[in-house]
């Protein structure tokens, strides 16, 4: 059992497994944010949805005995916060980014407040699908212990891409995001489209939170999220508002987060704080490289060009 998987191959597999494990919450939050931003609003508060989702998912799973009810509850909690964001932002002069920050504060505060009672108990967790059964190596098998939520997320990404390109509703969302004037000319209710996009986005972010508490790392406490919800917002820009790219970007971020511990576990111990900063530096560099004041980003909703 030992030896065969030591060294860099082990790191590679660990990073791959980590990409999936750590990346799944990123995936859900970024898909949610992508949907919201396509409709022309930024919801910076998805960190609040994520934490609130993690808490309510764990709480409901514990109280009901069903982890899947927990996931649903997490989504609903996220949707509620999303609805709050949408309703506030459609008022005149109300800044969507500021509301996002406020909701982040409110969501995490509420989750911590209500979540006190659920730090101790052990709730039923989500099961995993063993996709690595073919392999003789326990390492590969462990890396391929895939959660159903990841599969759903992986399918959701191309589905959302298709939705934006081909579905009528998808076109509506895009039109509203590209140009309010055009949307009004087409007789679309801008606020309503944005409302549903933000609520659905909030739902997805809540589900992403339930992955944290119900699967990986799989418990509820106040330090559970280290800002994944905030990072996911950055990730959407990184992925240029393309749901399929969100999927790849989430894996990349997840893998980058797994890199530090993986390198230390084979004895490369220098500068782990700097390795921990890798995802941020990477995003920043790519943002700088792909932005230009002359050229609007491909895929960027029109409402974002000021």
């Amino acid at each position: 059992m030992s030896g065969e998987h030591a060294g860099l191959l082990g790191v590679l597999i660990a990073v791959l497994g980590g990409a999936i494990r750590v990346g799944t919450p990123f995936l859900f939050v970024s898909l949610g944010e992508c949907l919201t931003e396509k409709s022309g609003r930024i919801n910076l508060g998805l960190e609040g949805n994520l934490v609130m989702g993690a808490m309510s998912g764990y709480a409901i799973s514990y109280l009901s005995g069903s982890a899947w009810l927990g996931v649903l509850a997490a989504g609903l909690a996220g949707a509620l916060l999303g609805a709050l964001h949408a309703l506030l932002c459609q008022q005149r002069n109300v800044n969507d980014i500021a509301v996002g920050i406020a909701l982040m504060l409110f969501g995490t505060g509420l989750a911590f407040f209500l979540g006190k009672a659920f730090i101790q108990p052990t709730a039923p967790r989500l099961p995993a699908i063993a996709l690595g059964g073919w392999s003789g190596s326990p390492v590969v098998r462990a890396a391929l212990e895939i959660n159903v939520l990841f599969v759903i997320g992986a399918l959701l990404a191309p589905a959302m891409g298709w939705f934006f390109r081909n579905a009528r509703w998808g076109l509506m969302v895009r039109t509203v995001g590209e140009s309010t004037d055009a949307a009004l000319a087409m007789g679309l209710d801008v606020n309503r489209v944005r409302f549903f996009s933000t609520v659905a986005g909030g739902f997805l972010a809540g589900v992403g939170g339930s992955f944290l508490s119900l699967y990986y790392p799989g418990s509820w406490n106040e330090g559970l999220s280290s800002g994944q919800g905030l990072m996911a917002v950055a990730l959407v820009i990184f992925a240029r508002w393309n749901p399929v790219s969100c999927f790849y970007a989430s894996l990349l971020f997840g893998g980058a987060a797994a890199l530090g511990p993986a390198l230390q576990s084979v004895g490369i111990t220098w500068g782990y704080y700097l390795f921990n900063a890798a995802p941020y530096v990477l995003t920043l560099l790519i943002m700088i490289a792909t932005s230009s004041s002359r050229r609007t980003l491909t895929g960027m909703p029109g409402a974002f060009t000021r």
Partner: peptide, 26 residues
């Protein structure tokens, strides 16, 4: 009360004051 109470209070104040932005001039 848990320490998160003040977080909740800050969040509520923030949200309500932002919402009140729409009242200016009305």
């Amino acid at each position: 009360l848990p320490d998160a109470t003040v977080l909740v209070l800050q969040g509520i104040i923030f949200l309500v004051i932002l919402a009140s932005e729409s009242l200016y001039g009305r």
